[in-house]
Measured scan of single mutants.
Amino acid sequence: MEVRTIKVFTTVDNINLHTQVVDMSMTYGQQFGPTYLDGADVTKIKPHNSHEGKTFYVLPNDDTLRVEAFEYYHTTDPSFLGRYMSALNHTKKWKYPQVNGLTSIKWADNNCYLATALLTLQQIELKFNPPALQDAYYRARAGEAANFCALILAYCNKTVGELGDVRETMSYLFQHANLDSCKRVLNVVCKTCGQQQTTLKGVEAVMYMGTLSYEQFKKGVQIPCTCGKQATKYLVQQESPFVMMSAPPAQYELKHGTFTCASEYTGNYQCGHYKHITSKETLYCIDGALLTKSSEYKGPITDVFYKENSYTTTIK
């Protein structure tokens, strides 16, 4: 009895394709271990004539594949690729409408935090270190965002349907971005203890939790000093293409032309909904596939993004 075979390709990165001759009487799992086709788990399936010449994702289970996976995804987590594939199996079914010149995501599976993050990423200057993220990001900007969303979920250790947080998501993504040249110098002034300067680099240099107003941050924000008295913390120097200011959701007025974009969060910790506000020729609110415009805006804002380049204080 002759062994019926077909020729397929296996890959971990969709760049390096490895030619395989597979036995049609055995499952993919018996031949390769966990195997995925377009995100779908085909591990328990036997090869079919229609699979001839198709590319299958496999887990990096030998040295060659491990090197290829690390170079593309910059992670050695053995569960990463499987999590990416199972997320992709959902995100490829989502709709990605162009809204006001940006790629958004039609609401499904509690994905409003991903839509808000995706919209924000198209408006701030950011370059990702893992080629996987950078490639998928370019495709997302062009309207094909399924891979990018699935990668975000995998890097953030999230599953489809789980509630997510924009600030946490951005923080994970910033860790995989090139923020080497970003720098922030802060000064804390206390009447009792004097003053202390701190220099922050990388992710810490672009994120701040405690106030939404970048102007206020430049002037000074009140913080408790270690001595128990009130101290003032203010920005001395900022070198970065953008800054992200966050605070627990509270009524906040966004003035046209003073910011790049913002995240609105309605609801409580267990259950809520994100919308995205962007400042173009007027203010726009993007909620999944829905767009509304207004000249002014007041609502429960939790993150505001500002364009920056270089700032030095005039406070002496």
Rank of each mutant, 00 (worst) to 15 (best):
E2H: 06
E2I: 09
V3Q: 11
T5I: 12
K7P: 10
K7T: 13
V8N: 09
V8A: 12
F9K: 14
D13H: 06
I15G: 15
N16S: 09
N16V: 01
T19M: 13
V21W: 13
V22W: 03
M24I: 13
S25T: 14
T27V: 11
G29V: 05
Q31H: 14
F32C: 13
F32T: 12
Y36P: 02
Y36W: 13
L37Q: 13
L37I: 11
D38Y: 08
G39R: 04
G39D: 08
A40C: 14
D41V: 11
V42K: 04
T43Q: 11
K44M: 10
K44C: 15
K46I: 13
P47F: 02
P47Y: 02
H51K: 01
K54V: 09
T55C: 12
T55G: 05
Y57C: 08
V58T: 11
L59K: 07
L59Q: 14
P60I: 02
P60A: 11
D62P: 06
V67A: 11
A69E: 00
A69L: 11
A69K: 13
F70T: 09
F70K: 12
F70D: 11
Y72E: 10
Y73V: 06
R83M: 10
Y84R: 05
S86M: 13
L88Q: 04
N89R: 13
H90L: 09
K92W: 07
K93Q: 12
W94E: 06
W94Q: 00
V99E: 13
V99N: 00
V99Q: 05
N100R: 10
N100D: 08
N100F: 05
L102V: 07
T103M: 04
T103V: 13
T103Q: 01
S104A: 09
K106H: 11
K106V: 13
N110G: 09
N111P: 02
N111L: 03
Y113V: 05
Y113K: 04
Y113L: 11
L114K: 05
A115Y: 03
A115H: 05
T116I: 01
L118W: 04
L118P: 06
T120A: 14
L121Y: 04
L121N: 01
L121D: 06
Q123E: 08
E125P: 09
L126F: 13
K127I: 09
N129C: 04
P130V: 08
L133Y: 01
Q134M: 07
Q134S: 10
D135G: 03
A136D: 04
Y137E: 01
R139M: 13
A140F: 09
R141K: 15
R141E: 12
A142W: 00
G143R: 02
A146N: 00
N147W: 08
F148Q: 08
C149W: 04
L151H: 01
L153N: 07
A154N: 05
A154E: 05
Y155C: 06
Y155L: 07
C156L: 04
C156R: 02
C156G: 08
C156E: 01
N157I: 03
N157V: 06
E162G: 02
L163S: 06
L163N: 06
G164R: 03
G164E: 03
G164N: 02
V166H: 09
R167N: 06
E168C: 15
T169N: 01
T169Q: 03
M170R: 00
M170V: 06
S171H: 15
Y172M: 12
H176L: 12
A177K: 07
N178T: 06
D180Q: 14
D180N: 15
S181I: 07
C182P: 01
R184F: 05
V185L: 02
V185Q: 08
L186N: 02
L186F: 13
V188Y: 09
V189F: 06
V189C: 09
C190R: 03
K191W: 02
T192W: 06
T192G: 09
C193L: 04
Q197W: 02
L200K: 08
G202E: 10
V203H: 13
V203Y: 15
V203I: 14
E204A: 12
M207C: 09
Y208P: 01
M209L: 05
M209S: 15
M209V: 15
G210V: 00
G210K: 01
G210Q: 00
T211N: 07
T211C: 12
S213H: 02
Y214N: 00
E215W: 02
Q216T: 07
K218G: 05
K218L: 05
V221S: 03
V221C: 05
V221A: 06
V221H: 11
Q222T: 12
I223R: 03
P224V: 14
P224R: 14
C225F: 00
T226G: 13
C227K: 03
C227I: 01
C227P: 00
G228R: 05
K229S: 14
T232H: 09
K233C: 14
K233Y: 08
Y234D: 11
L235I: 03
L235G: 04
L235Y: 03
Q238Y: 00
S240F: 02
S240G: 04
S240D: 01
P241E: 12
F242M: 03
S246G: 08
A247G: 10
A247Y: 05
P248W: 15
A250L: 05
Q251F: 10
L254Y: 00
L254P: 04
L254I: 02
K255C: 06
K255M: 06
H256R: 13
G257I: 01
F259T: 03
F259G: 01
C261V: 03
C261G: 08
S263A: 09
E264Q: 02
Y265N: 07
T266K: 11
G267Y: 15
N268L: 13
Q270T: 15
G272C: 00
Y274G: 03
Y274P: 00
Y274F: 10
K275A: 05
H276Y: 06
I277H: 11
T278E: 07
S279Q: 07
K280H: 08
E281Y: 01
T282L: 08
T282N: 05
L283V: 10
L283C: 06
Y284S: 06
I286L: 09
L290Q: 12
L291E: 05
K293D: 00
S294W: 15
S295C: 11
E296T: 14
P300M: 10
P300I: 14
I301D: 09
T302D: 10
T302L: 04
F305L: 08
K307P: 15
K307Q: 11
K307S: 12
E308W: 07
E308Y: 00
Y311R: 14
T312H: 10
T313L: 14
I315H: 15
K316C: 15
K316G: 15
